[in-house]
Amino acid sequence: MTPTGPLVELHDVTVAYGRRPVVWNVDLVIDEPCLFGIIGPNGAGKSTLLKAALGLVPLVGGEVRFFGEPLGRVRSRVGYVPQRETVDWDFPVNVMDVVLMGTYGRLGWFRRPGDRERRLARECLDRVGLADVAGRQIGRLSGGQQQRVFLARALAQQADIYFLDEPMAGVDVRSQERIFHVLDDLKAAGSLVVVVHHDLRTAAEWFDRVALVDRRVVAAGRTGETLTPENLQRTYAGHVDVLDDLAQAIAARGRTP
């Protein structure tokens, strides 16, 4: 199946919780495979925007299209990694069980995962470096390992577009590196990877394109052209706590061409 429209297209998207608008008038078009970062301060509505794109929170206005189609028609081509804290890690499943959940969408109702799904799941675990803990209960993993299990589950979806919600939150540096490398491989294989991210330094280092979000899109485009001091100032205005981060990010950007 060849894409008939832009990979992802958000048009005039507005989301509200109750009567309080969280993000508004978001226009965003991503038309080629890349590593795409959604960057912004805490409470800027980054995760909400991602959930809205996936139909997990209702839109007050606007529309979202994937490959020029509504999500319902191309769901199997869209992978998702939710925030790690949203699930109970004491749940009685092991690592393999969780990764197999990535195959449920294709399996459909009532069919149980078989040999083919297990092989795929093992492959995905191998890619995130967790093949040796496949049988472990998920609560007995480190935060970084848990995040990689979620990534492996998304890989098992065999999608063309991946959405990741704060995959680096509470994750050790080694797991971060590993995750970024896997995402890079996905991009190289022709997938689009959209990541909600909060750390400006790693953002400048890894993402091809970024959108700076503070309840609306402040700026979007190639990372080098978008992470400018002016744009960052506008995005983080009033968030004094990140000024230090910001300075480092600008410094980091200065080092990379």
């Binding site: 869209v78 998702y80 939710p82 699930v87 109970d88 959940m101 449920y104 969408g105």
Partner: peptide
């Protein structure tokens, strides 16, 4: 019959919804 689906929803309802369940 629905153990697979119910387990998915119980463990991670957001992922279940995002994948069309």
């Amino acid at each position: 019959a629905i153990l697979k689906e119910a387990t998915l929803v119980a463990f991670d309802s957001a992922f279940a919804a995002a994948t069309g369940w």
